[in-house]
Amino acid sequence: MSIPLFLKNIKNNTFLLMVFAALMSIYLAVIIYIYDPNGIGAMVDMMSILPTKLVNALGFGTIDSGLTGFIASLFYGFLIYLFPMVYCIILANRLVAKWVYEGSFTSLLCTPNSRIKIIVTQGIYLLASIGVLFTILFMVGYGMSEHFFPGMLDVKVFLKLNIGACLMTMTIGMFCFFFSCLFNSTKPALFFGALIPVSFFILNTLSKLSERTAFLGKFSLYNAFDGLAIVTGQSSISLISGGFAVFIGLLFAAAVGVFTLKRLPV
C-alpha cells in the first residue's frame, strides 16, 4: 500500500464521506428520537392504514417492539440499501475511472510503484472509508439511544447489525470498484457500477411484494442481509459476514487482476 496516495485519497474524499455520514446519522438519530416504547401500537396502526404491499416493499412489514428491532426494521431494512449504494458508486468512480479517464493516473504509474500497489491502495481506501462510515453510524446510534432511552439498546445486536450492513456495503462497493478498474472511461464505469446495485435493490424490493415474486430475492445480494432476522436471532451474523467477506475478496482480486493487465488510454 502506498501511504502518500492513501493520504491523498483521504484529502480528496473526506468531504464526500462526511456528507453521507451526516445524512445517514441525521436519519438514524431521527428514527431513534421518534421511538416511543409505549406507542409502538400506534405505529403499527398507522402502518395498517397503508396498503400492505407498499409496507412490505419498504420493509416495514413487521415492526419489533424493542428499540433495537425498531431501528433494525426502519433504518437497517430500507435506507441502508440506498445511501451507501450511492456513496459506493460515486467513490469507486472517483478512485480509479475518473483519474484514468482524465489521464492523471499516468502520473501515479510513472512513479516507482507497481500497478498492484496503487490499485490495492485505492481498494483499501474504499473499504476503509465504508468502515469509517459505519463506525460513525454505530457511535451515533449508540450515543442517541443511550441519551434518550438509557439501557434499552441491545448493543451486541446493534453491533452485529452494523457489521453485517458494513460488509454488505463493502461488497456493493467492490462491484463498483471492479467496473471502475475495468473501464477506461467514467461513463461505462458509472453505468455498470450503478446497474448492479440498483438491480439488486429492485429485485429485493420486488421479492417482498408477494409470494409469487419471492424467488427474485435469491438473485439479490441485499436479501442476504436481513436486519430484523439478526435482531430476532434467526440468521447467523458470522455466516453472513463470512459470505460477504468471500465476495469482497473475490471481487477485489478480480479488480486488481483486470487493472494490472489492461491498456491504459492515451
Binding site: 489521464g103 492523471s104 502520473s107 510513472c110 516507482p112 510503484n113 500497478r115 492515451v266
Partner: peptide
C-alpha cells in the same frame, strides 16, 4: 518491471494531465 524502471526514468507525456485540484 515498470515500477523498477520508473525509479530511474523521467517521462514527459505529450498531453499533460496532472491532479488539477
Amino acid at each position: 518491471r515498470a515500477s523498477a524502471i520508473q525509479k530511474n526514468t523521467g517521462y514527459v507525456p505529450e498531453d499533460v494531465a496532472l491532479f488539477e485540484n
